[in-house]
Simulated assay, not measured.
Amino acid sequence: MEKIQVEGPYNFDLVLDRLSIDPLNQVDHVGRSVKVPMLLNCTPVVGKVKAIGTTEAPEFLIEGTDGPFKEKAAERLSEIFQWNLPLETIHQHFQNTDLKPIFDKHYGTPIVLDFDPYGCLLKCIIHQQLNLSFAHTLTERFVKAFGFEKEGTWFYPLPERVAELTVEDLRELQFSGRKAEYVIGIAREATSGNLSFEQLKNLSDDEIYDKLIKLRGVGPWTVQNFLMFGLGRPNLFPFADIGIQNALKKLFQLEAKPTLHEMENFSKSWNPYLSYASLYLWRSIE
Rank of each mutant, 00 (worst) to 15 (best):
M38N: 11
F239L: 04
S204E: 13
H29S: 15
S275G: 00
K150Y: 09
P58E: 01
G53V: 12
W83F: 14
A135P: 00
G64D: 14
G31H: 03
E2M: 02
M38I: 15
I62Y: 04
E140L: 14
Y10D: 03
G31K: 15
D98A: 10
G67H: 01
S78E: 02
G147W: 09
L200R: 13
K250L: 15
I244F: 05
G147R: 05
L113Y: 13
R76M: 03
T139E: 12
H261I: 05
N131V: 09
D98R: 14
H106F: 15
L195I: 07
F81V: 02
N131P: 14
E255L: 12
C124A: 10
V36M: 09
F252E: 10
P272Q: 06
K214A: 04
L165I: 09
W270N: 06
C42G: 08
I111T: 12
T137Q: 11
K70M: 13
S20G: 12
V162M: 07
A57I: 12
P272K: 13
D28R: 02
P86D: 04
V45K: 02
K105F: 11
L170H: 09
L251H: 13
P157G: 12
H91S: 00
L203G: 15
K211R: 14
M38T: 14
A256S: 10
D66Q: 14
T153E: 09
L130Q: 05
K250T: 14
E189S: 08
M1P: 00
L132T: 01
T191N: 09
Y280S: 03
Q224E: 11
Q174T: 07
Y280R: 10
W154E: 04
H106E: 12
F60H: 02
H127T: 01
N131L: 05
I208A: 11
R283Y: 12
E63N: 10
G230T: 07
I125T: 06
D205K: 08
V167G: 04
A187E: 06
I126E: 03
